[in-house]
Design a protein around this nucleic acid. Structure first.
Lengths: 346, 346
DNA sequence: CTGAAAGCGCTTACAG
DNA sequence: CTGAAAGCGCTTACAG
């Protein structure tokens, strides 16, 4: 006599075979139902679906992927999730991935190249269909390629690593810095510094390029000491403010590498007896939430990180669908949010 | 004649069998090597590991998990990644999970119960070893249980849903609000409102409780209209400020539900001819980055969301290791960050 | 439209 | 310490 079991279902151990047996069809048929194949008769489908409910069936996508030799996972590797810019980016990636039926595996590197290698290797063991990587500062193409291999489509975000056949998405750093500089020029500033960031980073180079472009167009040749390098953090930016005026006390404005640097700069200005937005103009880059509420509110180049995330995911999915297509470098537009920190010179 | 292939390895299609064949051992042996079994001879291990390198082998954790009937993935489901509090929390979860060799599958719900159901169901198909869920506003235990089943350990974060045999981790809302209220009382305030949040949310109820406790201890019976409900957003908080003074223009301070509400409240005060930190004291909750740089800087209850994330992950991993143990409600301590927004009354 | 058999890449007993 | 066989839960041809 069979036991009166399977009324209470044992924790999601229900398999396709159980369903098949439960309603008297083959496993193949159940498999077709689960994947919405039109081959199966409506009555059969209904019967099978009722059995799904009854037994509490949960599809095992891992098993399916193993058999099919594909994957419904995309890995996102980010330097710093606690940076709101990347958090928004991740939210955008998740959004677009979810729509396409992919799940997102997330890893973070804390800007450490060593951790990045470890995280990439570990994520690869889950056989993602593709990877979105925002490279840690100082990443090298060789190391990353070694961890990822050549079989997994990858899209680089924010920092390029020398065309290794990967797609690359970034915001238009050059145009952004150009817009910020042009804005300051339009306010009547002439002696404008470019403040902060590491020269080695591609985003810093691009922003400096935009700055130089605008200055040149205005017929101004920036002095070498108008270019000040600092770690891209608030604290470091605040510390270096003295260096800004050491060589040229007549500077009246600065295009900061990013908002963190700009906020640090504004803080440091006070220590030099100057006040941002009053006797010195500052612009930032990123438009982090704080920018709108700082004192004074910070004029900055606004990007839409969530939209960037969506774009990154969509582009990667395209490549997953068609791996052979040519590699692309996508540049997303930016806009200037003008606030009080960028007033005309005295 | 065999082809001279396999010099350039075809994109990570290398399997254990290839390695076994490549160095003349059985697949079982290679499997033992990959899992660091002490059973295998050092020479054999070295030979196999050399072959890993040579062929560029990547372990397929999905296949291993399928066979072993376990999982090395944990799913994190969060209401809003663009909220820095949750982003930090996620970073902490990721950190602790990584240390333990787990990968993190991330989903976000945008505070939508419907999306939460969809996300949970979708993530379950990847057979996570456990789930950390920060429930969307209005979640019900039944729905969540339906999507997750009873076989997967789950830890709830931040919002409880009526003891369904799940672990629950939250910060000490009650103590935090009590501390904030006591601080205002110590400054000499008596007519103190509790401002913002939805009464239905457990965190709001707990904070109100802490507020009431401190008031009672000071011998003050809060008037009913000192409790003002608003959506927990800056905008809504700013809009409702008039309501605050409609019934009682003599209020001198408010304990705000969280920092967003507090910042909105401070904004709205200006519209009523008052100034936070000068003729009205405000405290917040969360210590978001903006709190330190707002004008005036916001006194607030600081939590350490990254540490909360680590704790959540560690607790979940414990339960995964030992599913039978009793369910726990973990309350993480908080501290008060005193700043200028909470000055004494005029 | 449905069923029996083989296989995805791994691990697990079970012998040796 | 190593090997041959079976199986995790699914899908894929291939017959019917």
């Amino acid at each position: 006599m069979p036991p009166m079991s399977s009324k209470t279902v044992s924790a999601s151990r229900v398999t396709l075979a159980d369903i098949a047996e439960g309603c008297g069809v083959s496993r193949a048929t159940v498999s077709l139902v689960v994947r919405n194949s039109p081959l199966v008769h409506a009555d059969t489908r209904a019967k099978v679906e009722a059995e799904f409910k009854r037994q509490g069936y949960v599809y095992n996508r891992g098993a399916a992927n193993l058999r099919q030799g594909r994957s419904s996972i995309v890995a996102l590797v980010i330097n710093d999730l606690s940076n709101p810019f990347f958090a928004e980016f991740a939210a955008g990636v998740d959004e677009a991935l979810g729509e396409a039926g992919y799940a997102m595996l997330l890893g973070s590197t804390s800007e450490s190249v060593a951790r990045q290698q470890a995280v990439l290797s570990s994520l690869m063991e889950h056989r993602p269909a593709g990877i979105i990587l925002s490279p840690a500062e100082g990443s090298e193409a060789g190391g990353v390629a070694g961890a990822v291999g050549s079989g997994t489509p990858m899209l680089l975000f924010n920092r390029d690593m020398g065309g290794c056949g990967w797609d690359f998405l970034s915001m238009d750093n050059q145009a952004g810095a150009r817009m910020a500089t042009e804005h300051l020029l339009a306010q009547g500033h002439r002696r404008i510094a470019f403040y902060g960031g590491f020269q080695v980073s591609s985003s810093c180079r691009q922003r400096r390029l935009g700055y130089a472009e605008a200055m040149a167009a205005a017929g101004i040749a920036p002095e070498p000491h108008w270019l000040i390098e600092t770690a891209p953090t608030r604290l470091e930016a605040a510390r270096q403010v003295a260096a800004l005026f050491a060589n040229d006390p007549a500077l009246t404005a600065a295009v900061a590498y990013n908002d963190a640097v700009a906020l640090g700069l504004m803080l440091g200005l006070a220590g030099c007896g100057r006040q941002a937005g009053r006797d010195f103009a500052v612009t930032g880059f990123d438009d982090i939430p704080e920018a709108a509420v700082s004192v004074p509110p910070l004029t900055t180049v606004a990007t839409d990180p969530r939209e960037l995330g969506r774009q990154a995911a969509r582009r990667l999915l395209e490549r997953i669908a068609e791996p052979a297509q040519a590699t692309a470098a996508i540049v997303a537009p930016v806009r200037l949010a003008v606030r009080l920190s960028s007033s005309p010179p005295l």
